[in-house]
Computed example of a mutant assay.
Amino acid sequence: MTKQNDKTNYTYILQCADGTFYCGWTNDLAKRHAAHNAGTASKYTAPRRPVEIVYTEQFATKQEAMSREYQIKQLTRQEKIDLIRNGPPNMKISLS
């Protein structure tokens, strides 16, 4: 019997102080954000602090979040900017 995961998993994009982006996944967004800003979460973000969360997506499983992280990491910088501004193509909401 498999244990059901009761935590939400997140794929996130950070904007670093130098303007670059970092993508990762976690099941505790606030804790991971604090760790990035403390310089303990990533060798990439440690010298580029402070970092700000600019985008998140939620998933039921770790595997889904990790898969989405990989997909986002394959995007160009402009595609990441578009994702941050507009969300994923299938998640656009019309307000009209």
Rank of each mutant, 00 (worst) to 15 (best):
A46L: 03
S67A: 15
P88M: 10
N86R: 13
D82C: 05
Y55C: 11
N37L: 07
N9L: 03
K62R: 13
N90H: 14
W25L: 10
S42L: 04
T45A: 09
I72Q: 04
T76Y: 01
G24L: 01
S96L: 08
Q58M: 08
T61Y: 05
A41I: 02
T11K: 05
G19F: 00
E79F: 00
K62E: 10
C16T: 10
Y70P: 01
A17R: 03
A41R: 03
E52H: 04
A46R: 09
Q15A: 06
Q71G: 12
F59K: 11
P50Q: 07
S94Y: 08
N5A: 14
M91E: 14
D18L: 03
R48H: 05
G39F: 01
A65F: 01
W25Y: 13
M1G: 15
E57R: 06
K62F: 04
T45Y: 00
F21R: 11
K43L: 09
R32N: 09
T20G: 07
A41Y: 01
L83C: 07
R49D: 02
G24N: 05
H33S: 15
Q74N: 14
I72W: 01
P47N: 09
T20Q: 09
G39Q: 06
Y12S: 05
M1D: 14
K7Q: 15
L14G: 05
S67W: 00
G87M: 08
G39E: 03
I13M: 10
A17T: 01
E79R: 07
F59D: 07
A41N: 09
Q71R: 13
D6C: 12
C23L: 06
Q15F: 00
I84K: 11
A35W: 02
N9G: 08
R68P: 00
R49T: 06
P88C: 08
S94F: 04
K92M: 12
Q71D: 13
I53D: 03
R77K: 13
Q15G: 04
K43D: 13
A17H: 06
E57Y: 00
E69P: 05
T26W: 00
G87D: 05
K7C: 15
N27T: 03
T76L: 04
T26E: 04
V54M: 05
M91G: 11
Y70D: 09
W25H: 14
R77H: 11
K7T: 11
R49S: 03
Q58I: 00
D6I: 12
Y12N: 07
